[in-house]
Write a protein that binds this DNA or RNA. Structure first.
Lengths: 202, 202
DNA sequence: TGGCTCTTACTGAACGTTCGGTAAGTATTA
DNA sequence: TAATACTTACCGAACGTTCAGTAAGAGCCA
């Protein structure tokens, strides 16, 4: 797959603060996230958080990195030798047919964070990088499929962006609507798209 | 197309407050939206807002309706008699090749609001309804295309959900990343998907 | 026409609460 | 004893919300 970004190492105290922030976000959403709430989840005083972070903004930037690391860790896996299977593997990681509670929660948190990218430059850069990496991962699989002769001679970048947009859209809808069946329909349709539009049939 | 929801009529004062809220949201984002900020945009006192709305929550619900009306007004248009053109027309409305500033702003505001649907039930229901209506609009066009013989005999709902997810995903990315070329690539790929996957070629 | 009442659409000040942030002090460990 | 990891107690500002008061006008009666 594509080169992983190096993960920062969190001290035990920092990791606990990140986990507390995660829980606070799940309960109150981004707009309702405060240092008091994080401290309550942490089981320590507000000042304890300021011992580790200079300002709320610093904590938020650190948390963004934390959440992104988590997300990318769930996506990254080894590559097989069948491009169709690889592609469906990536899609399954991003848009699982039956997501467990952990996956749902992480994606909910990320959607909350991502909406901040509309007005916040730092957030915007991070999510630009995330989508860049995801698109590159998908593109590499498609390129390999074309070289091997499994896939038709399509534009790998274009197809990768198409698949990424579809998966992102379904993920987004899953987190912000009660249209679960729509997400499932999209998954099925995406698989048939890969099979009929992309695969070279004998 | 699909049945339009009836639009509420706003008094002059209410409409001004909605416009002020819109501007405040653009400047400060949802997390930074306060009654003071709206009042400042409005050019009146905070109490003036409370004369028209009982609480911030009520104002927010009203604004959600206001923004959704605006959004759906830009999408709704008459139907032609060529399904392929109709489909591309809807896609162009949702994901314009070159969005003007107004479209960008409205979509940015909607992405900010939509992220609240993760934790807020009322918001979630609204966005579920929006996606329901958009999917139905697309599905109707596809169904007509199949009846007329322009499209192959696909599952109209499945294809509609696929197209909607892709468009939503690209819209979302446009509002939260600096990957403008990716949105363009998705548009192009979507057009070729409609042509090659959906159209019955002679 | 002038005076009276009542409504509409506000203003400005203040309420209690919560916000992000800080200064000073206190255990615990090396 | 010095650094580490905190707690307690607090600050000023901003938050959503309420309240008393008022200018402008409408509707009606004499």
């Amino acid at each position: 797959m594509v080169a992983d970004a190096p993960e920062r190492d969190w001290s035990a105290a920092e990791a606990e603060i990140m986990e507390a922030t995660y829980r606070a976000l799940l309960e109150h959403g981004y707009a309702g996230l405060s240092i008091s709430r994080i401290a309550a989840e942490l089981g320590k005083s507000k000042a304890a958080i300021y011992y580790h972070y200079d300002a709320k903004d610093d904590l938020l930037v650190a948390f963004l990195e934390f959440a992104v690391d988590r997300f990318e860790a769930t996506v990254a896996t080894e590559t097989g030798d069948e491009p169709t299977a690889d592609l469906e593997h990536v899609v399954e990681k991003l848009l699982p047919l039956q997501p467990d509670e952990e996956q749902r929660q992480l994606q909910a948190v990320l959607v909350g964070l991502r909406s901040q990218a509309v007005t916040n430059e730092v957030f915007r850069e991070q999510f630009t990088r995330i989508d860049d990496r995801l698109a590159a991962t998908i593109r590499d699989v498609v390129e390999r499929g074309i070289e091997e002769g499994t896939f038709r001679d399509v534009d790998p970048s274009r197809v990768a962006e198409h698949i990424l947009a579809t998966v992102n859209g379904a993920m987004y809808a899953r987190a912000t609507t009660d249209r679960e069946s729509a997400a499932a329909a999209t998954r099925v349709s995406l698989a048939s798209y890969i099979d009929s539009e992309l695969r070279r049939h004998p």
